[in-house]
């Protein structure tokens, strides 16, 4: 099997989940899946559950440069992308890159930024390049944006419109850790300092190679494509859903399913891979009808999954 660098990737997940991000194995795994499939991740949870820690630890462990943007309502697009500043010595404008010019970018509380800023950010995420004053600057690869938002606090926020949400490959919560682990965390205190001293476990080259392995080495069979399409089609015709999973969403599901299969040690995708990533990758792309707006999108998607026969042969 041609699953290059799989061991290294698993090592990253193991190390982070067992030593630094206890009880967040799922979020860590999803982050790595998003990274491997070339997407971005939106962590949606209340403050204080370790969203930032997760992003930091991940950046450290992957040996990547890390940038952070704390969103506020007066944050300007140039605060993210960077801007040209007049250099008095050289008598010309020079471009000062913003925090987005990093491999791992943590965009904290993305819904606090005003739509204009959000839009600039999301465009950068999608295009992987930034155009400032007529000059296009390519972003470094690998490129992973970890955005967080607080779903509870609504005052003074600009909720991401569905069209923007669609650009995140994965949306996930973190959730409280299991009580035993949480007690251990309380006893041990904050681990931010520990993370600072975390040595990179892999190189950027390793990640690029792993991404290539996922893209080219994992086989997606017709049967699984059919299955995936059946899911997407079912969300589009579901009575409680006004707008189902887009084609971009379907592509994202296929990519992440491949990454999931890669992490599981398979060079082919099985329907269970699709099932595993369906909710984090697909749910936030659903737009519910007005009367069903209070439904949990993840549970709704799981309910849809349970109606679709798995291709066994």
């Amino acid at each position: 099997m041609n699953l290059a660098k799989r061991a290294e990737m698993l090592h990253v997940i193991d190390t982070l989940a067992t030593h630094y991000l206890k009880g967040k194995v799922r979020a860590v795994r999803l982050s790595v899946i998003a990274l491997l499939s070339g997407g971005h991740i939106l962590l949606e949870d209340i403050p204080g559950l370790g969203k930032t820690t997760l992003a930091l630890a991940l950046a450290k462990a992957l040996g990547l440069s890390f940038g952070r943007v704390q969103c506020t309502s007066d944050l300007l697009p140039t605060d993210i992308t960077g801007l040209s500043i007049f250099n008095r010595d050289e008598s010309r404008f020079t471009f000062v890159p913003g925090p987005i010019f990093n491999n791992v970018v943590l965009v904290d509380e993305i819904n606090r930024a005003m739509p204009k800023t959000q839009s600039a950010l999301l465009e950068a995420m999608e295009e992987r390049k930034v155009t400032v004053e007529g000059t296009t600057h390519h972003l470094p690869g690998p490129f992973l944006v970890i955005a967080t938002q607080n779903p509870v606090e609504q005052v003074g926020t600009y909720p991401l419109p569905e069209s923007q949400l669609d650009r995140f490959m994965v949306r996930s919560g973190i959730g409280y850790p299991p009580d035993i682990i949480e007690k251990a965390i309380i006893k041990g205190g904050s681990i931010r300092d520990g993370i600072q001293s975390l040595e990179p476990l892999v190189s950027a080259n390793d990640i690029a190679e792993a991404q290539r392995a996922v893209k080219e080495g994992v086989y997606l069979s017709d049967a699984v494509v059919d299955y995936l399409y059946a899911i997407v089609a079912a969300t589009r015709s579901h009575p409680a859903i006004s707008s189902g999973i887009s084609t971009r969403g379907a592509i994202g599901m296929a990519e992440t399913a491949k990454a999931h299969a890669y992490l599981e040690g398979r060079d082919y995708v099985i329907p269970e891979d699709v099932k595993a990533i369906a909710a984090p990758v697909g749910a936030h792309r659903l737009i519910l009808t007005m009367e069903n707006d209070n439904l949990d999108k993840g549970e709704l998607l799981n309910a849809v999954l349970n109606t679709i026969p798995v291709p066994l042969a």
Binding site: Y219, S221, A223, V224, Y268, V269, I270, P271, E272, K275, L305, N306, T307, I308, P309, V310, P311, L312, A313
Partner: peptide, 28 residues
Amino acid sequence: SRGLHELSHMVDDPAVAVFVDIWSGAIY
């Protein structure tokens, strides 16, 4: 709506796991 690997996890039988691996390795 249940896949073979899910079945394999449910029963925890090495024979089932081997079957599912061989089977899906071809089918998928």
